[in-house]
Structure formats: structure tokens, C-alpha cells
């Protein structure tokens, strides 16, 4: 709880600072409104991050502290013990590397695949365009549980089980990313493309040197979704990966969930570690992400 109090105190300080910049007559009303705003936001803040705080508490305490009543709400001293145990159970660095490698490669390739498709869907007229786009969108409606078995069968027929290719291939063409990027490409001024054409630039060149650079925000938005998808992907990697050294983070974490033996300290340490990279990724790209979403939603 101490942490949340800090946050509230901090926001109140900010509040007075903001207030000082206001002109006097409006001050009282504005101040009241600001109090309202911060109260509302603080409530949501506590609700949103409390489970994360608790996750961290779990990571620094012994497994037996997970279920005490009243609940343990202060960090303990088992941080290193849990970290060491977790590392012994699943090999943190290896699975972290695997996950970063798989997610990173996936984002790069999927972005290339989706962006080029989205671009032509937005900016060119060709036969079957509408059909292709609709088909992409419709495919989002199929529950994944239904396609799991045929996909698995296919991967095993091609002898691709236990490869990262099998992990990422099915989702390289990611309809949601195509949709999001297409909406952004629609906004790109066609005149710019025309004038480049008159200057003799090839279509590929227009795409790579003129369109792409101006689409950074949209690409950032798409990569956040792609990264999130792959980083948290569980069921499919579980099914196709067959050795512990190939495991990605969520699959490795799940291997801690035995029948009657669960070391919650380790599990919470694991989920804390698994959350960090994705927050970092979001923080890095969030500014562009916001404007990228902007492009997609309003068109």
C-alpha cells in the first residue's frame, strides 16, 4: 500500500504546480476539477497496478506467504532465493533469450509481410483486392482452438516440429496488423507517389524510401501488437516445441505448474520478469503507438 500512497502524494504535488500556472479568477473552479480528475485517476491507477504490485510482493517472498490471511503486502527478502531457484528450474537467460529472439524475428518479418500487403491494399487497384482484404478480416473470427490440430498436423508432415519457424509461421500474416497499417497507408498523400513516379522512381523505391519513412508511428503501433502477441503466445509454442532448450518464456513458466507442487515464489518471480520486457517495449514506442493508432481508427 505504501507505494500507492506515494503515487497519490506525488500527484498532489503536481497538482499544486499545475495550479500555479493558472490565472487567479478561474483558479478555484479549476482546482476543484483537478481534484476530481486526480481522484478518479488515482482510483483507477490503484486498481490497474495493484495486481502487479502484488506480483512483485510474491516474487520477493517465500511461497508460503502467498496465501496468508491477512495478505502479505510488503516486499520480503526472498528475491535472490526465488531468482536462483527459478533459474535452476527453467534457466532464465536461455528462455528469455529464446523469447526475445522469437518475438524479435517475428516482429521484423511479420512487419515486412504485413506492411507490403497493407500498402498495396491501400494504394493500388487490382483484381481481387477487396476479396483478399475481406478474407483477411474474416479470418480473425475463427477461434484458434479450431485450427490447432490441422496446423500441427501440417507442421509435423513437413518435419518442422520443434523449430522456431513453426512457432512464428502461422501468424506472420497477421490480419489485425494488416488492417491497422492499411488504414494508415490510406492517409498517405497519393500526389507524393505520383510526383515520385514522374521523377522516374520505381514502385519499390517509392515504397521503401518515400512511404515507409513517413509511416514510423503506424509501424510502431503494429510492432507493439505483434510483439505482445508473440511474447505472450502460449498454446501454440507449447504444442510445437518439444525440448526444454527451445522453450519460450510462457511455456517454461507453465512447466512450473505441476500437480500438487507449485512454488509460488518462483512463479511470481517468473511472471514479473516476463512482464518487464513488454513494458520496456511499450514505453519505448508509446508516443508513436498513440499516433499510429490514431491513423488507423479514424479512417
Amino acid at each position: 500500500m505504501a507505494k500507492n500512497l506515494d503515487v497519490i502524494e506525488q500527484t498532489t504535488n503536481e497538482l499544486t504546480l499545475a495550479e500555479r500556472q493558472q490565472k487567479k479568477p478561474k483558479r478555484k473552479k479549476k482546482k476543484l476539477k483537478a481534484v476530481w480528475m486526480y481522484t478518479l485517476l488515482s482510483i483507477f491507477l490503484v486498481v490497474s497496478i495493484f495486481p502487479f504490485y502484488w506480483m512483485f510482493i510474491g516474487a520477493t517472498n517465500d511461497s508460503s506467504k502467498m496465501f496468508t490471511n491477512p495478505p502479505t503486502l510488503l516486499p520480503g527478502d526472498q528475491f535472490m532465493t526465488n531468482l536462483t531457484n527459478l533459474n535452476e528450474s527453467i534457466g532464465i537467460f536461455r528462455v528469455l533469450f529464446n523469447s526475445l529472439f522469437v518475438s524479435g524475428l517475428y516482429v521484423v518479418i511479420a512487419l515486412a509481410v504485413c506492411a507490403s500487403a497493407a500498402y498495396v491494399l491501400a494504394k493500388y487497384n487490382f483484381k481481387g483486392k477487396k476479396f483478399i482484404f475481406t478474407a483477411f478480416l474474416l479470418s480473425m473470427m475463427i477461434p484458434y482452438q479450431a485450427t490447432l490440430i490441422p496446423l500441427f498436423q501440417m507442421m509435423s508432415d513437413f518435419n518442422l516440429l520443434n523449430t522456431y519457424f513453426a512457432v512464428i509461421a502461422p501468424q506472420l500474416c497477421f490480419p489485425f496488423a494488416i488492417f491497422l497499417l492499411r488504414q494508415n497507408f490510406l492517409a498517405f498523400p497519393t500526389e507524393l507517389m505520383e510526383s515520385a513516379r514522374l521523377d522516374g522512381a520505381s514502385e519499390t523505391r517509392i515504397f521503401i524510401s518515400i512511404v515507409i519513412p513517413s509511416m514510423r508511428p503506424a509501424l510502431a503501433a503494429a510492432s507493439i501488437f505483434l510483439f505482445m502477441t508473440q511474447w505472450n503466445n502460449f498454446m501454440w509454442p507449447l504444442v510445437v516445441l518439444n525440448t526444454n532448450d527451445m522453450y519460450t518464456f510462457p511455456v517454461a513458466l507453465s512447466s512450473l505448474m505441476g500437480l500438487s507442487y507449485i512454488d509460488y515464489g518462483q512463479v511470481m518471480m517468473g511472471v514479473t520478469l516476463a512482464t518487464v520486457p513488454i513494458i520496456a517495449f511499450f514505453l519505448t514506442l508509446q508516443k508513436q503507438f498513440i499516433s499510429g493508432m490514431l491513423g488507423s481508427a479514424l479512417k
Binding site: L105, N159, L160, L161, N162, T163, Y164, F165, A166, I168, A169, N242, T243, D245, M246
Partner: peptide, 10 residues
């Protein structure tokens, strides 16, 4: 990608 997985361990 296909190469970087170690298949055959099944």
C-alpha cells in the same frame, strides 16, 4: 529460421 530449430529430437 527453419534451420535454427533443432528438429529430429522427437
Amino acid at each position: 529460421l527453419a534451420a535454427c530449430g533443432n528438429s529430429g529430437s522427437d
